[in-house]
Amino acid sequence: MTVLRTAGGLSLRFRPRALAVGVGAALLAAGLGLVALGSGDYPMGPADVLRTLVGGGTPAEQFIVHELRLPRLVTALLVGAALSLAGTVFQSLVRNPLGSPDILGFTQGASAGALVVIVLGGSSLALAGAAVVGGLATGLVIYALAWRRGVHGFRLILVGIGISAILTGVNGYLLTRAPLMDAARAVLWLTGSLDGRGWANAGPLLVVLVVLAPVVLIGCGPALRMMELGDDTASALGVPVRRLRLVLLTAAVLLVSFAAAAAGPVSFVALVAPHVTKRLTRAPGPNLLPSMALGAALLVGADLVAQRAFPGHQLPVGVVTGVIGGGYLVWLLAMERRAGRL
């Protein structure tokens, strides 16, 4: 722990290691972003990309960077950061590393909402709105079933797994009802993809993140650390437990839903990024900011792999995160079992 103090009695405390991880992840995200902006059918060097970003370059380069590649990159950064922040909040509230929105069913709820719009037909704005409504509705149901009398981490996870199974069934039904063209579009959406994402996709998520990140990081962050000690201890330390939980749950569900609206339910980022952050920082407590940066880097990296790993054949980013995340989950379950927590 390092402490900075001013003569006026103000003080800031931080862990150098956590700071280093956060800065490192942010630089990694920026570096990968630069590579992503420069690669594709029209390759550009990092210097050209930077020059184009600040307004130079040919009109063609301007178009390629600003209109084609940058919106996709920004969407990836925002989705990664939002999912990772939401995942950290969930895992911390549930006090269980498995408490990620993928496993708890929020992602499936957002998918169900979006699928309804895809099947019935509607604009991409309606799709985004429906995803948010679906996510929030799932949040309400899970809250009512499992959360009313305080968090019992494992019960919440089991209820979440049940809800998520039901919703997967609902989603499957919706797919069978959809016309073939729509079904194909729906399946692509369900995998999670950044293909063809424009400013219209990034915009709403950016607004949500700009509003909610300070609420979560500054408004609730310190209290969330106390919540890790158990509801009783947190309450004894002056944390308004019930209100805090409601605010954080709402914020996290909104983040997940808007991220799903922008890129589809990209799997496992919310599970993996907070975890890797915790291992790297070696710090107890939710490491909100480093974990946001790492989530952003992870998704940009995964999207780069998805676009470039198989030349001439693009994968949806959800396939890559699924493979990485699924492997990580299996490994995690083995570790948790060894540690006797599962």
Partner: peptide
Amino acid sequence: RGRYPHQGLLRQWS
């Protein structure tokens, strides 16, 4: 962590 009720955003560790 017992100091939580005495701390603030800009008074994190006096």
